[in-house]
Design a protein around this nucleic acid. Structure first.
Lengths: 157, 157
DNA sequence: CTGAATCCCATCGGATACTG
DNA sequence: CAGTATCCGATGGGATTCAG
């Protein structure tokens, strides 16, 4: 993702008026929510890594089965080979993907999820499932929002 | 371009050992993995929306409790008000966040997750939990990768 | 086939200043 | 306090070309 300077500035407000009780999440309640840059935030860090345009899609594909470079490229949709290479390097660097070079002629390279990558796959599939189920709802909300905004402008202008 | 289904690449896993059996995911196996741009891919669409630098962090914070603009801004870390506004507009547009204007003086605005947003919260927390548990492992892998790459260059150059 | 190297532009997001 | 309006640098990522 983009660069992130980290000037320090904390002071969590914690004003009152809360009312929505949250079902106790795993681990500490606001553990992952504590991203006040009083220290590095793991969520922020991880998200900066896999929050790019392709990483998640690539991992989902590799979650189906190991794939070679070309296969992966076709499977993931429309992606330039440069960007796919960069994405895979990043995932490999972070230990999420394993890269196995087959010394054949011509050379072929097989990518697959590492154990660490596999441990993340569940959450990614959770996201994917939600997306499949709710993309329509989102599109609907968006259309409604834009429509109302359109009428408002139409009236106001 | 058509599917270019995997025409049984005979040269796939000569290394054996790949074979990661996938636990049957919800819905169809590759439903969400079918992003070959033969039609729109919901995962891609959703991800394009919340895959920016702040949306997920904002939603996680709002998942803890409703927050006012300023509170949210401090809670999420270091974010310009412009970007926070844009992010919130996007989330609101997509129906993930609700914006309630309190007609006080000075005006105050409370943001909270909509039902749709709440339905996504679980998956986001899954990601967050994974991040909390594995950010160290990722950092470690990264360090190892860079180290090895360093030695290689040191030798080769 | 895999992938490194360039070029190049759209955009994302940060800083700053100004309204209600 | 919440939000809008500019300005602008950094970056992501696509197209293309070259190489092992």
């Amino acid at each position: 993702m983009k660069a992130t300077k980290q000037p320090q500035e904390g002071t969590l407000p914690s004003s009152g008026e809360a009312e929505v009780t949250i079902p106790a999440p795993p681990h500490s309640p606001q553990e992952w929510a504590a991203c006040n840059y009083e220290g590095p935030c793991p969520v922020r860090e991880v998200y900066d890594r896999i929050g790019d345009k392709w990483s998640v899609l690539v991992m989902l594909q590799l979650g189906v089965r190991p794939l070679r470079f070309g296969e992966l490229r076709r499977a993931v949709g429309v992606i330039s080979q440069r960007v796919l290479t960069v994405t895979l390097r990043g995932l490999e660097r972070d230990g999420l993907v394993r890269r196995d070079v087959m010394d054949t002629r011509p050379p072929s390279v097989v990518y697959q999820l590492s154990p660490l990558g596999l441990s993340l796959l569940g959450s990614l599939r959770g996201l994917a499932a939600w997306a499949s189920e709710n993309s329509v709802a989102m599109a609907h909300a968006r259309a409604a929002f834009d429509a109302e905004l359109g009428t408002m402008q139409g009236n106001a202008v």
